[in-house]
């Protein structure tokens, strides 16, 4: 076994351990502090404070956070690989806020459609708009134009969101604002089931598509020469990416910057170079970030439950700035 593979395995173990630690910490810390022993007893016997926490208080939220983070992280990695640009994430390009807007509007209009469906519709609509507006008539696409147009769509949905929020009565306004910031408070097993159910289906589809992604990485001409219908493959991959992001948004709201950060973070730790490995490590990294952001948001100010999106916003923005300065120095933008 060569050194590179060893490093990869070590990185994967580190990532897995980090996720485990994040989960345990997240289960232990809260208004009532638990010890690891309490949790262990609760897990084994199904009795005591540990069991209650696992089953009702924190368990569902943490599991939902893992699912939502993984979905968002994987989605980010897909777009980053597809557009070959670390800035190309569904949250930067307005897909997640489109999904969020659709859900808020749907709920306010009183529809009985399930959240993931609304979310998917909104995300796909935003993605289509971005594609239509940014891709030139001859089919060529400039990643930077896609990103900027996506930002514009994000501005538009943000305006619509704030309009909706100002129209609501105070109680609902606070609730909607929380949700639009991205929050994992008060999630139940229904949410967890939802995100893992949809996520699993999409993951299976992604496994089938991943080979096309590794061909597309070689450039369109070569990929076509190798027998791939590049445009169709790209469209399918983008579709899966949007739906993954929408799955995350449906249970956690449009939490900003997770999709942006997860890919590069996962890749740095595991050293994965192949699309499959990058997406997997991005999913795990996304889960870690989300679990920790939720933990920080609910414990940083005692007695106050902030939405997780506030934390990812505060820490994700400096990352974006750092990324910018690095990309600039490398002359990529």
């Amino acid at each position: 076994m060569n050194a590179k593979t060893m490093a990869g395995i070590r990185g994967s173990l580190i990532l897995a351990a980090a996720l485990l630690i994040a989960i345990v910490l997240s289960l232990m810390i809260g208004q009532i502090r638990l010890s690891a022993a309490d949790l262990w007893t609760g897990l084994l016997t199904g009795k005591g404070p540990g069991a209650l926490t696992l089953r009702v208080l924190r368990g569902p939220g943490v599991v939902t956070a893992i699912g939502a983070g993984a979905a968002l992280g994987a989605s980010g990695a897909i777009f980053q690989i597809l557009l070959r640009n670390p800035l190309a994430a569904p949250d930067v390009m307005g897909f997640t806020s489109g999904a969020g807007l659709a859900i808020v509007c749907g709920v306010l209009a009183g529809t009985s459609l399930p959240m993931p469906l609304l979310s998917a519709a909104g995300g796909l609509a935003a993605a289509c708009l971005v594609a239509i507006l940014a891709i030139k008539r001859d089919g060529s696409q400039v990643p930077i134009t896609l990103i900027l147009v996506g930002l514009g769509i994000g501005f538009l949905t943000a305006a619509a969101n704030s309009f909706v929020v100002t129209r609501l009565p105070p109680e609902q306004a606070a609730e909607a604002q929380r949700w639009l910031t991205g929050s994992l408070a008060a999630r139940d097993w229904g949410h967890a089931g939802q995100v893992f159910g949809c996520g699993t289906v999409l993951a299976v589809i992604l496994v089938i598509q991943v080979r096309a992604l590794s061909l597309l990485e070689l450039g369109d001409d070569l990929a076509t020469g190798l027998g791939l219908k590049s445009n169709r493959a790209r469209l399918q991959l983008a579709g899966t990416g949007v739906l993954l992001a929408a799955t995350g948004v449906a249970v956690a709201g449009p939490v900003p910057f997770i999709a942006l950060m997860a890919g590069p973070l996962g890749m740095r730790i595991t050293g994965a170079k192949q699309p499959g490995g990058r997406i997997l490590s991005a999913a795990v990294a996304g889960a870690i970030i989300t679990v920790l952001a939720d933990l920080a948001a609910r414990s940083i100010v005692p007695g106050l439950q902030l939405p997780a999106g506030v934390m990812t916003g505060i820490f994700g923005a400096p990352y974006l700035l750092w990324l910018l300065s690095r990309e600039m120095d490398a002359g990529d933008i």
Partner: peptide, 28 residues
């Protein structure tokens, strides 16, 4: 460049507005 400045502005806004919404949400 326009792209860099724009994205820097977007990132800065996102961070500052996250703080703002943290405060706003903390106090009804």
């Amino acid at each position: 460049g326009p792209v860099r400045l724009t994205l820097a502005g977007v990132a800065l806004s996102a961070m500052l507005l996250s703080f703002v919404s943290a405060i706003i949400l903390a106090r009804n």
